[in-house]
Design a protein around this nucleic acid. Structure first.
Lengths: 342, 342
DNA sequence: CCGGCGCGTTGGAACGTTTCAAACCGTGGT
DNA sequence: ACCACGGTTTGAAACGTTCCAACGCGCCGG
């Protein structure tokens, strides 16, 4: 047990009877090395169990071959899918990914940003908590490319989003076409861009149909509990004012709402049709499978990572910040089935 | 724009008119530096916007202040909760966390392990895909502590698990106490330790009650689709052979089963009581809230990280590998409510 | 007046790579 | 015999830190 901790290139060089530089060449430009030497070095590497020290590589080369995704809430399947897309793109480019989870906490987000700056990551993908653009500006000021995911951050940042107004329109139009005229929008707080945009889209669609009405129930958060509460509020309305359909800003709300409706003995979609948003895995698994607006989550992540790589590569040269906007899609399931088709 | 990319300690030293070593001392042992010097250096740091280069620190100090959690499937909320626990513990210790997702793919797992070795992480937490103990042995042979999460890996590894046999017993006992005598176990493939252990527990409980019977329906996977399929199989049984209760190895199965039951017009728990496993968030949000066996996920992650830190600290000295086993808890909800209490 | 002590500070080696100019060596042309 | 040449190999500098031995210096006790 007298050997050193982990073997370094120096040890490999010694064992193979060549110089340090040659070992490096075998690793990085194998074609510059004669075939015999190469084999000898490779054998030495094998025998010693040598593993490259990425840390030292980074220090010397200046490239960290690492990027990071700071998600808002890993508990939400939406973000884990985005993260998967990011990782796929990164993997393809031979990069490692730091996955961080701010849990909607600005303090934690700052903690991670600090850490990532210190780690000298090549770039940061982030779904920021608040309008943290000043903080992000500072990060970028230090030379780290930043791409904003699922949020718009103005023309100074690359960003990848899904058109939430179009999504809201899609959902509301679907309900209108099914004949509903009194529709509830459930979501909030409306200070959240997504919630507001989806409402805007729904309003637009409803305004286009004479006699149609949109009732807004603002919630305090986008979770299951709030969905349940909204269900109670709806059930409490007198029959004449009660909507026949609900569009929820998010599947969690929709699931909570659905649960409460079923519990109260109401029929979905008979008494209330429901459209959710995000099309999380459990939307299709619900008692009454949820109609939902689906976002290309995987693609979102992958594209964001690709934009980042592009920005990192063309850093300095005229890199144009791009705002990529994807279109959502409606996935129709039983929760909005026409009575006739049942 | 003649300045160098990012300022280093050398720049700080120059600006503050002190030596490099002093800057280092201000950063690492501030009490060894006189108050005036300290302030001067701090001012310089502020003005230059200096950010520590963690990469260089690691290289020199030999400590990476980073650990990794290689999860099996980030899409499963179980693992994201565990990951959160890991991150909390790591954060408390001032460590960064690489979150990786093998997606049950041995190849990807190996890719990440290679990467992590190269990154010289302090330690690795992993829920391995197969019996990858030889691979893990190799990793540890390189001096990297490994803690296995949610899997048993024998006495040579630290591990943190939840007692699945006890969990199965808990679930089955609950159903037996509710008066059920014909109970289905739904789960598989039984080559998966968890699925097998939970079955063992259920068998044990059922064996203790005369006249009780356990029917095993092995599934090909632990997901919603398989749950649905199991639902069809159950519904297809002649009334006399049809169980009155089902214990699913996992909530996804249970949700699929529940969905199919509701769809077929059967009542839960009236026609079939259902117990799931994992108590994921959506268990409580289901149409009929699911009774489920809950595991201390957050604690699992936190404890695993703490074990890892311990192993990393006491490396070399007599570190005892510990196998921590937590106890599951039954969370009773409507899916197993007694008829009387409805 | 000198030796020793302690506090602050300094300079330089070391960590494990990459990179690049220079050295080496066998060959073929003149 | 000499030189230029291409393909290999070498040696040393550099990346940004941490760590440590050594240093300067004011002060106290003798």
């Amino acid at each position: 047990m007298a050997g050193p901790g982990t073997p370094s290139m120096k040890d490999v060089a010694a064992r193979a009877g060549v110089s340090l530089g040659t070992v490096s060449n075998v690793l990085n430009k194998p074609d510059r090395v004669s075939v015999q030497t190469r084999d000898r070095v490779r054998a030495a590497i094998e025998q010693l169990g040598f593993v490259r020290n990425e840390t030292a590589r980074q220090l010397r080369s200046g490239h960290s071959r690492t990027l990071a995704y700071v998600a808002l809430d890993s508990g939400n399947p939406f973000f884990t899918d985005v993260a998967e897309g990011v990782q796929d793109a990164a993997e393809a480019a031979g990069l490692a990914v730091f996955l961080c989870n701010s849990r909607e906490d600005g303090g934690r987000q700052d903690f991670y940003l600090d850490m990532l700056e210190q780690q000298r990551v090549e770039g940061i993908l982030i779904t920021p908590t608040d309008n943290a653009t000043d903080r992000l500006d500072r990060v970028r000021g230090r030379g780290i490319p930043v791409v904003v995911v699922d949020r718009d951050a103005g023309p100074d940042f690359c960003s990848v989003t899904v058109d939430d107004v179009a999504g809201g329109e899609l959902a509301a139009t679907h309900l209108l076409e099914a004949g509903h005229r009194k529709i509830a929008y459930i979501g909030g707080p409306l200070t959240i861009g997504q919630a507001a945009d989806r409402l805007t889209g729904a309003r637009k669609a409803v305004a286009a149909v004479p006699g149609a009405e949109l009732i807004v129930l603002e919630t305090a958060a986008l979770n299951v509990a709030e969905g349940r509460r909204a269900g109670e509020r709806l059930a409490g309305l007198p029959g004449s004012r009660r909507p026949t359909a609900a569009f929820c800003a998010n599947d969690l709300l929709a699931l909570g709402l659905l649960q409460r409706m079923v519990r109260l003995g109401l029929d979905v979609p008979g008494d209330l049709a429901i459209v959710g948003y995000d099309d999380i895995e459990f939307a299709g698994a619900a008692a009454v499978p949820l109609t939902s607006v689906s976002q290309p989550r995987h693609l979102l992540g992958r594209t964001a990572a690709e934009l980042l790589l592009d920005e990192a590569a063309g850093s300095g040269d005229g890199h144009e910040h791009r705002q990529v906007v994807f279109s959502p899609e409606l996935v129709v399931r039983a929760s909005t089935a026409l009575r006739a088709t049942l």
